[in-house]
């Protein structure tokens, strides 16, 4: 059930079943179950990059897609990273294939990585001004030099590698 802008009721108006279904039942159901997309990505191996420019980690599989009713969207990410040697990593989120949430900054989150694994998150952010319709949210990353890894693997024999990359988007009212 989708969201419908609530009706402004008139004095003396005959309230029908259709009206109640649309403006009460369906809207309550829409609020109870808002559009959501949660990606727990198993890449059967780590993602890597040494790109000096922000690029998508995986513009096919590590992308949250949802159809909204015009509300704001809460989006966040968490994953486990390391690097082949000391390097700076920057993370960002791209909306609809073009707009970086961290535009105006280097990115949303930066971290100096070494060979030890670290769980790193982009905390929940509210994305405003989205028209009703389909929207996509993708994780971007870059490195200042060395190759960085995002672990995303359920097939590895190494328990510490068996971790999903998690990207979530949910419309909020």
């Amino acid at each position: 059930m989708g969201w419908t802008t609530p009706r402004t009721w008139l004095v003396g108006e005959l309230v029908t079943k259709t009206m109640l279904d649309t403006h009460l039942r369906d809207n309550l159901m829409a609020l109870k179950d808002p559009p959501s997309a949660q990606v727990l990505r198993d890449n059967a191996g780590a993602y890597t990059t040494n790109s000096s420019t922000l690029v998508p980690v995986d513009d096919v599989n590590l992308k949250a897609t949802l159809t909204t009713y015009g509300g704001d969207v809460l989006v966040w990410f968490v994953g486990t990273f390391n690097a082949s040697s000391g390097t700076n990593m920057v993370l960002d989120i791209r909306v609809d294939g073009s707009d970086r949430l961290g535009a105006g900054f280097e990115g949303l989150v930066a971290q100096t990585l070494g060979t030890a694994r670290e769980a790193i998150a982009i905390p929940p952010l509210i994305v405003t001004g989205l028209d009703p319709g389909e929207h996509t949210f993708e994780l971007l990353w870059s490195s200042s030099g060395a190759t960085i890894r995002l672990f995303s693997d359920t097939t590895s024999g190494t328990a510490a590698d068996n971790l999903p990359a998690i990207l979530v988007a949910r419309e909020v009212s």
């Binding site: 890449n43 191996g45 780590a46 993602y47 890597t48 990059t49 040494n50 790109s51 000096s52 420019t53 690029v55 980690v57 995986d58 096919v60 599989n61 082949s84 870059s142 490195s143 190759t147 890894r149 995002l150 995303s152």
Partner: peptide, 29 residues
């Protein structure tokens, strides 16, 4: 990935910005 990055950097192509792997693909930026 580390070896491939070395090999691509060694080509000396000015437009090269890095390489990513994952999802069964190599993406050269």
């Amino acid at each position: 990935p580390e070896r491939l990055a070395e090999e691509l950097a060694g080509l000396g192509i000015a437009a090269y910005r890095g390489v990513s792997t994952g999802g069964g693909r190599v993406r050269v930026h």
